[in-house]
């Protein structure tokens, strides 16, 4: 009867195991609290205008009716030429981005460049590049080069440097140290260690990143024309400004087609490569 009140003599000997310490449990709980609070705050700060929300379905239906049927005759030559220009912007921008990103990635990788201040500087460059949206880069380069494809190419390149450089420096840091050590032990100079020790290990990542970024850049360069940086966005902007919604539909379909084709091509090449 009173068995429950008798303290278990073996209690001090019983060992307990928990996944987390009390401090860890508390901090995990706090993280969840912060996440929920941030979500609630974000929802409250979006201003939803009730009148606009109310007739949103009507507006959308109206827009679709105006777009249909698409003015396919408009495709050639105006949209076609702009589309080709978009592809040129994406391709040249990606190549330029790699030319800029490779040296920065080498400086950012701690196993390649042992100087901490240079690592930090390179990482800062990469973050700075990524923190600016490509539309903002485009506005800057339109101011420098004037409107046109040159501004678009540079905008694409500068936005891509951060992305490409970060992924390349991570690929460099994930390489096995053994092969490079063996080459160093054989008296190979720095360039040879890079070429034969590091490059074969990062090669799949390099081409994977190149294709993926090109794929992203095709999509990004489609909107750069909205700020005058060349490509198909210019045609899209014009059509919207003149309320030629059937032409807008043609442009949107052309962009969709290019993105789908790019996706298929990139997936095929990646499968061959890796």
């Amino acid at each position: 009867m009173s068995a429950t009140s008798i303290p278990d003599p073996a209690a001090p000997l019983r060992r307990e195991w928990r996944r987390f310490t009390p401090a860890q449990r508390l901090s995990r709980w706090l993280v969840w609290l912060v996440v929920v609070a941030a979500l609630a705050w974000a929802v409250r700060s979006i201003d939803i205008i009730p009148e606009f929300l109310a007739d949103a379905p009507e507006q959308m239906a109206d827009l679709l009716v105006r777009m249909w049927p698409p003015d396919l005759a408009h495709y050639y030559p105006a949209v076609h030429a702009a589309l080709i220009e978009t592809l040129h912007i994406a391709t040249l921008g990606t190549i330029l981005a790699f030319a800029l990103a490779v040296p920065v990635a080498l400086l950012a990788a701690r196993n390649v460049c042992p100087l901490r201040p240079l690592n930090v500087l390179a990482q800062f460059i990469l973050v700075a590049s990524r923190s600016v949206n490509s539309l903002v880069w485009a506005l800057i380069f339109v101011a420098i080069f004037g409107p046109g494809a040159a501004a678009g190419t540079f905008a694409i390149a500068f936005r891509s440097v951060g992305f490409v450089g970060k992924l390349l420096s991570e690929a460099l840091e994930e390489t096995a140290p053994g092969p490079a050590e063996a080459l160093r032990a054989a008296g190979a100079p720095w360039g040879a260690v890079m070429l034969k020790g590091f490059w074969p290990q990062v090669q799949p990542a390099f081409w994977g990143v190149a294709l993926f970024r090109w794929d992203i850049n095709v999509r990004e360069s489609a909107v750069l024309g909205l700020v005058g940086a060349g490509g198909i966005g210019v045609v899209l902007d014009d059509a919207i400004n003149y309320f030629q919604w059937d032409r807008v539909a043609t442009v949107l379909l052309a962009i969709l087609a290019v993105v789908v084709v790019a996706e298929v091509v990139v997936t095929r090449i990646r499968a061959r490569l890796i």
Partner: peptide, 24 residues
């Protein structure tokens, strides 16, 4: 030097791994 974990460059051919000994 010969290593416990061989330290070959995995993605290069056997021939090129041997030639790596002459990189100096």
């Amino acid at each position: 030097m010969v290593f416990q974990e061989y330290n070959l460059v995995e993605r290069l051919s056997v021939m090129e791994n041997v030639l790596c000994g002459r990189l100096g």
